[in-house]
């Protein structure tokens, strides 16, 4: 009441800050509604339809596809396999990226921009091309196998591709730039004085890393992990090419169901499942961030 009275008289066409907010966020709301909410809703609607043999769809409202997915061991394993592989990818990507990000963060400023550019540069090449690059490296006649055979370490080419290993290796390399950039964004709180303070108090190198450096960079770690997990679970090209049809993940299965088998309701319900996994990952992330603060 008092606040309203204290408000100075103003033209009715002038808006104060609070009134301006909805107008300013309207454009992004519109974009989101058209490009995200509407397709998501269509997917949800599609997942409630009933597939008919031959690729036709019968408009109805049934939870039958969901029940099928939940009761079929194949799909449950698919979900489990996806989460499992993507968790491994996330953890290994983190372990490989952390030292690089730390090194760049501590580098001389004139080198830092060059190093950052080097981290980003793989993103200039399409993931498809990079994936074919891995086929060349990991294939039966690839770089690694050729080397192993020439040294006589193995008699027959080692299976490095068209299995989980190939998919994990390829996705790690493709996702590392995202992890490194997220980590670097989270290194703002990392003051070298803090690490020096720890050392002066008697902390050895590894203890300093464990007690000071990692806790201080945890927000960046959480962000990077969320991003890489989400990107890996939704990535399609790399698992498709490096998995060679032998690695079954949610994204590749959705593709097969919708494009090859034309079972759109099933593809849609699997997509909704991916969305649920994203939601869960986001919840875990925000819990962690809140706990860190």
């Amino acid at each position: 009441m008092n606040a309203a009275q204290a408000e100075p008289a103003r033209s009715p066409f002038r808006l104060n800050g609070r009134q301006l907010v909805p107008i300013l966020i309207l454009p992004i709301l519109l974009v989101n509604a058209i490009s995200f909410l509407w397709p998501t809703f269509s997917l949800l609607r599609m997942s409630l339809n009933e597939p008919v043999a031959g690729g036709a769809i019968r408009e109805t409202l049934t939870l039958q596809t969901y029940i099928d997915v939940m009761t079929d061991g194949f799909y449950l394993e698919l979900v489990w396999n996806s989460i499992y592989l993507c968790s491994i990818i996330t953890i290994v990507t983190l372990i490989l990226s952390y030292p690089i990000a730390l090194f760049i963060h501590r580098a001389d400023p004139k080198w830092r921009s060059i190093l950052t550019l080097m981290v980003i540069s793989p993103l200039l090449v399409s993931a498809v091309v990079r994936t074919y690059g891995w086929v060349i490296i990991l294939g039966d006649q690839g770089l690694i196998n050729a080397f192993l055979m020439s040294t006589g370490l193995v008699e027959r080419p080692a299976r490095l591709i068209f299995n989980n290993f190939g998919v994990v290796v390829g996705l790690i390399e493709i996702l590392m730039p995202y992890m490194i950039l997220s980590l670097m964004a989270g290194f703002g709180r990392l003051d070298p004085r803090l690490e020096e303070a720890a050392q002066s108090l008697g902390a050895k190198r590894f203890t300093t890393l464990r007690r000071v450096t990692i806790p201080l960079t945890a927000p960046g770690i959480a962000l990077g992990c969320l991003l890489v997990f989400v990107l890996s679970i939704s990535s399609f090209v790399t698992p498709k090419l490096l998995g060679g049809g032998r690695v079954f993940l949610l994204a590749t299965e959705i593709y097969d169901q919708s494009i090859v088998l034309l079972n759109w309701p099933l593809a849609a319900s699997l997509s909704m499942l991916v969305l649920v996994i994203f939601g869960a990952a986001l919840v875990v992330y925000s819990r962690i961030v809140k706990a860190l603060d």
Binding site: A197, A198, L201, K204
Partner: peptide, 28 residues
């Protein structure tokens, strides 16, 4: 190395560990 020198160091910026309570800082 610094961690074996047994010196107490007070920094210009204090360099307190922001993720620890006052007590944990002192206990470190």
């Amino acid at each position: 190395p610094a961690h074996d020198r047994d010196m107490g160091l007070v920094f210009q910026s204090y360099a307190l560990f922001p993720h620890m309570s006052v007590e944990r800082n002192v206990a470190f």
